[in-house]
């Protein structure tokens, strides 16, 4: 299995690599277009601020490459948010893969949402053997709104999309690589897609 983590300078690549290593897979990181195109599976990570992450994507030309990929792609956290139409963070236009906007949590709750929350309304093979209301580790201040592309929801101030899917593209707002045994199962499911 040839798993490639998109390396564009924004992301917790190490944690994801270690998580795959625990599953017996050596995930490499690369920004080389040929390597990305020929991978079996692609992980699109992201930590940090949306507009600067998008700038880095554009500088490497990856903003054009990612939406054209044909194999299963999994966006994690900010990676998922950048795959949406638009995010309020830094007033940033996204890759427009998922037809939804990303907004900031307002004042009713602590921001960032930090810690373990449940996911529900699970609707994809990505969640095979994952029970309803399983706990996942979340760290985020912005969220993708309730929408058609949703394959899981979570509740924090609002009910929002905790996972998205369109064709070969998947996105999760939580960090499967840090979500204990259940998170490992989701990564394993992704490898089997």
């Amino acid at each position: 299995m040839n798993v490639v983590i998109v390396d564009y300078g924004a992301g917790n690549i190490k944690s994801i690599q270690f998580a795959f290593k625990r599953l017996g897979v050596d995930a490499v990181h690369s920004r080389n277009i040929e390597i990305l195109k020929t991978a079996d599976k692609i992980i699109f990570p992201g930590v940090g601020e949306a507009s600067s992450a998008m700038t880095m994507l554009k500088e490497s030309g990856l903003d054009q490459v990612i939406p054209e990929l044909k194999q299963p792609v999994l966006g994690i956290c900010l990676g998922m948010q950048l795959m949406c139409n638009y995010t309020e963070e830094g007033n940033t236009k996204g890759l427009e893969i998922f037809d939804v906007d990303v907004k900031r949590f307002k004042t009713g709750v602590k921001v960032p949402q930090m810690g373990w929350n449940t996911i529900t309304d699970l609707k994809s093979d990505l969640f095979k053997n994952i029970k309803d209301l399983e706990f996942m580790y979340f760290v985020h201040s912005y969220y993708a709104a309730y929408c058609e592309a949703m394959i899981a929801t979570a509740n924090y101030e609002y009910l929002y999309a905790s996972a998205l899917k369109k064709d070969n593209f998947y996105g999760v707002q939580f960090h499967p690589e840090k979500s204990s045994v259940a998170g490992e199962q989701i990564l394993k499911n992704f490898l089997e897609l």
Binding site: K14, S15, F18, A19, R22, H175, E177, S179, S180
Partner: peptide, 8 residues
């Protein structure tokens, strides 16, 4: 630790 531990 990061290699072996699956929580933050």
């Amino acid at each position: 630790i990061a290699q072996h531990i699956n929580i933050p």
